[in-house]
Protein backbone atom coordinates (compact mmCIF):
# COMPACT_ATOMS: atom_id res chain seq x y z
CA UNK A 1 0.00 0.00 0.00
CA UNK A 2 1.27 3.51 -0.73
CA UNK A 3 3.00 5.47 1.99
CA UNK A 4 3.28 9.23 2.30
CA UNK A 5 6.29 10.47 4.22
CA UNK A 6 6.28 13.61 6.37
CA UNK A 7 9.55 14.97 7.73
CA UNK A 8 9.63 17.40 10.65
CA UNK A 9 12.64 19.21 12.11
CA UNK A 10 13.07 21.43 15.14
CA UNK A 11 13.18 25.06 14.01
CA UNK A 12 16.65 26.00 12.81
CA UNK A 13 16.96 28.89 15.27
CA UNK A 14 16.17 26.72 18.30
CA UNK A 15 18.79 24.72 20.13
CA UNK A 16 18.40 20.98 19.50
CA UNK A 17 19.81 19.38 22.68
CA UNK A 18 19.39 15.84 21.29
CA UNK A 19 21.41 16.70 18.21
CA UNK A 20 23.97 18.48 20.35
CA UNK A 21 24.40 15.35 22.50
CA UNK A 22 24.96 13.20 19.40
CA UNK A 23 27.43 15.73 18.00
CA UNK A 24 29.29 15.48 21.32
CA UNK A 25 29.43 11.68 21.03
CA UNK A 26 30.78 11.91 17.46
CA UNK A 27 33.38 14.36 18.67
CA UNK A 28 34.49 11.88 21.33
CA UNK A 29 34.84 9.22 18.59
CA UNK A 30 37.26 11.51 16.80
CA UNK A 31 34.67 12.53 14.20
CA UNK A 32 34.83 16.20 14.99
CA UNK A 33 34.70 17.16 11.31
CA UNK A 34 30.93 16.72 11.70
CA UNK A 35 30.43 20.14 13.22
CA UNK A 36 26.69 19.91 13.87
CA UNK A 37 23.95 17.29 14.20
CA UNK A 38 20.23 17.96 14.27
CA UNK A 39 17.55 15.35 14.92
CA UNK A 40 14.06 15.41 13.44
CA UNK A 41 11.15 13.08 12.90
CA UNK A 42 9.95 11.03 9.96
CA UNK A 43 6.29 9.96 9.79
CA UNK A 44 5.17 7.26 7.34
CA UNK A 45 1.43 7.44 6.69
CA UNK A 46 0.02 4.41 4.90
CA UNK A 47 -3.27 4.76 3.04
CA UNK A 48 -5.30 2.57 0.69
CA UNK A 49 -5.33 5.15 -2.04
CA UNK A 50 -3.34 8.31 -2.66
CA UNK A 51 -5.19 11.09 -4.43
CA UNK A 52 -5.16 14.88 -4.38
CA UNK A 53 -7.64 14.99 -1.52
CA UNK A 54 -5.51 12.69 0.64
CA UNK A 55 -2.38 14.66 -0.20
CA UNK A 56 -4.11 17.89 0.84
CA UNK A 57 -5.25 16.19 4.03
CA UNK A 58 -1.69 15.09 4.82
CA UNK A 59 -0.40 18.62 4.24
CA UNK A 60 -3.00 19.91 6.71
CA UNK A 61 -2.28 17.21 9.31
CA UNK A 62 1.47 17.75 8.93
CA UNK A 63 0.99 21.35 10.06
CA UNK A 64 -1.76 20.86 12.65
CA UNK A 65 -0.97 17.55 14.34
CA UNK A 66 2.35 16.03 13.25
CA UNK A 67 4.26 19.25 13.94
CA UNK A 68 3.91 22.26 16.22
CA UNK A 69 4.74 25.38 14.23
CA UNK A 70 5.92 27.19 17.37
CA UNK A 71 8.91 24.88 17.71
CA UNK A 72 9.08 22.79 14.53
CA UNK A 73 8.97 23.03 10.73
CA UNK A 74 7.56 20.54 8.23
CA UNK A 75 10.58 20.28 5.93
CA UNK A 76 9.41 17.67 3.44
CA UNK A 77 6.34 15.73 2.33
CA UNK A 78 7.12 12.85 0.00
CA UNK A 79 4.32 11.36 -2.08
CA UNK A 80 4.94 8.08 -3.97
CA UNK A 81 5.88 9.10 -7.52
CA UNK A 82 3.80 6.49 -9.32
CA UNK A 83 0.57 7.87 -7.84
CA UNK A 84 1.30 11.54 -8.02
CA UNK A 85 3.58 12.13 -10.98
CA UNK A 86 6.24 14.38 -9.52
CA UNK A 87 4.03 15.78 -6.76
CA UNK A 88 6.35 16.64 -3.87
CA UNK A 89 6.63 19.36 -1.33
Amino acid sequence: MPTIVVEVMPKAELLDPQGKAVAGALHRLGKSHFTDVRIGKRFELTVDDVNDEVIAEVRELAESVLSNSVIEDVVNIIVPEDVAAGETH
Partner: peptide, 11 residues
Protein backbone atom coordinates in the same frame (compact mmCIF):
# COMPACT_ATOMS: atom_id res chain seq x y z
CA UNK B 1 -1.75 29.34 25.76
CA UNK B 2 0.87 30.64 23.37
CA UNK B 3 4.38 29.31 22.88
CA UNK B 4 5.73 25.81 23.26
CA UNK B 5 7.99 23.77 25.50
CA UNK B 6 11.14 22.07 24.24
CA UNK B 7 13.84 19.85 25.71
CA UNK B 8 15.90 21.54 28.42
CA UNK B 9 18.86 23.38 26.93
CA UNK B 10 21.34 21.32 28.96
CA UNK B 11 19.69 18.10 27.78
Amino acid sequence: LEGGLIRNSHG
